[in-house]
Amino acid sequence: MKKKFLALALAGAMTLSLTACGGGNGGNASTGGNGGGNASTGSSAASGGVNFPTKSITMIIPYDAGGGSDLINRRACSIVEQQTGWSFTCTNMPGGSGATGYTELLNRDNDGYTLLGCTSTIVSMKQMGILDIDHNDFDVVAGFNQEICVLVANTNWAEKNNINTLSDFIDYSKANPGSIAIGTSAVGGIWNLDLLNAASKTGCEWNVVPNAGGGARAVIDCAGGSVQACAAGAFEVFGQVEAGSVKVLGVMTDERLPFYPDAETFQEAGFDVIGATTRSILAPKGTDPEILTVLEKAFMDATSSQEFIDFCENQGTSPWSVSGQEAFETYNMEMDIYASVA
C-alpha cells in the first residue's frame, strides 16, 4: 500500500516539475526551454551590441481577439518572428477601448519584454477625461499601421440625391442642415472625433449618431439605410464597399487611397481634414534606448515587407512603417485635433 502511494507521489512531482520547466509560453527564464533557445540564436545576429531578446516577448493587445486591431497586430508580430527568429506571446486584454491595456502596461517592467500595440485612443482617452495618461507616459517604439477615417454613404440614397462626390455631399449638407444622419463610433471614439473635426472644418451640420463600440455597427446601419452616411475606418467599410451597398465619398488623408481610387480626399475638396487611427508599439517608459532601437528596426523591417503591405492593402488599411519618433509626433498632431473637438 505504501509503495503505491510513494510511486504516485513521485509521478505527481515529476509531472509537476516537467510542466514547470518544459511548458508554458510565458517564457522560460533560467532553464532555457523551447522558446528561449530559439530566441537567443536569432537575436545575437540582429541586436548587435545588446543581448536582446533572450526570451519570449509579451505583446499586450488591448482589443478583442479576432478584431481589426488584433489581426493587424498579430500579423506584424508573426512577420517579425519570421524575420528575426524571436518569439512573441500575444495576450488580449480588451476593455475601455484600450484603457485596460494601457493601464496595465504602466505597471510592467521596462526591460523591453512587455510591449503593447496601441491605437490613437492612447491620445484621445486623456482628452476625454477618462484616463490620466497618454502617449507621453510611454516610449513609442515604432508605428506599424494607419487606418484612415473615411466617409461613406448609402449607395441608394446617394443615387437618389445625385451625390457622386464629396463636394456634392457637402453641398447637400449645407442646403439641408441637420437632415443627414451619419453613424459613427461612440462619443470620444476616434472616428467620432474625426467626424466632428470634419464637421467643424467644412462647416456642415450633421446629425451624428454614435454607436456602441467601433465603426463596424455604423457601417452596417449605413448599408441597411437606417443612417444615410457613416464615418468609420477604411478597414471596417471594406466589406460593404465591395458588396456595393455603400459608396466611399471622402477619405481623410493627404493622398487618395489605392483601394478606393475614386474617393476624393478632403483636401482635394478644399478642406484640411485629416483623420486616422494610428497604431504603434508602446513600451513602458524608461526602456533602454538600445533595446528600443533593436525593437524599432525589427518592426520597421517587418512592416515594410511585401507580405505586410499585401495583407494591409487587401483589407483596406494602410501599411505604415515609421520610427517611434515619427509616430510620437503624429500622436502630438492628433492630440491637437482631439483637443479642439473633445
Partner: peptide, 10 residues
C-alpha cells in the same frame, strides 16, 4: 456599470 457604450461617460 462601466463606460457608457454610446457616450463613453463613466
Amino acid at each position: 456599470v462601466g463606460m457608457d457604450p454610446v457616450t463613453s461617460v463613466t
